[in-house]
Design a protein around this nucleic acid. Structure first.
Lengths: 107, 107
DNA sequence: CTTATTCATAACTATACGATTATGAATAAT
DNA sequence: ATTATTCATAATCGTATAGTTATGAATAAG
């Protein structure tokens, strides 16, 4: 379900892949053909990218007849948000410590 | 100063690089030698990774004598936070729309 | 039944990337 | 002055990856 930060970062590192994910986030569910139009690459390439996004848990696929509909799974970004939170929270903590120190020095 | 999401994602896609950045975030400024010990790779490899992080704006380097001190620049994560925000905010908006719709249907 | 469409997979290729060793430049130590 | 240390850069190599074309499987249409 919830992928590792590593899978997420690697999946989103490619601009084409990020573009596909953004389109799904902003415009909602779409077929492979729709995603291919405007992607600037071949349909197999798009399919492969979607496979990577799917393995990272970032998209869901829904089969309907002979076409596959892909949709964004925004919750999958949670580990990313958590990670950035952990990295920046520490900075804030240190900043707070510094403020505390300065306050104590004032007295 | 503030790098593109592309540079950030690409810089953080590598686990070794992410590890270095995490160490700098959590343990504060460190020399290349310190970062090399425990990285599991050679010193030149560490230097190259630090170069990538520096170009992405994620770290700062401070030269002191013959050693270089690197420190994390957590603010550089802002574009990442913004991006994830844009992607998830849309989901929330749609969710809100759905809630509104359901409320209106209730009446 | 035959043909067309939609997507995924296979096979292949070029390039990007992470690692190594070798080396040099700058500073510190003897 | 000589030697040692610290780091960055250059040259090289193997592998991962993003792209292509070719093809097949499944479903829809004629």
């Amino acid at each position: 379900m919830t992928a590792s930060p590593d899978l997420l970062f690697r999946a989103l590192a490619d601009p084409t892949r990020r573009g596909l994910f953004e389109r799904l986030c902003l415009d909602g569910e779409q077929t492979v053909a729709a995603l291919t139009s405007g992607a600037g690459i071949s349909q197999p390439a798009v399919s492969k990218h979607l496979g990577v996004l799917r393995q990272a848990g970032l998209v869901l696929d829904r089969h309907e007849g002979r076409q596959t509909h892909y949709s964004a799974q925004q919750r999958a970004l949670a580990p990313l948000v958590d990670w950035t939170g952990r990295m920046t929270r520490f900075w804030e903590a240190r900043f707070d410590d510094l403020e505390d120190l300065l306050k104590r020095m004032d007295q």
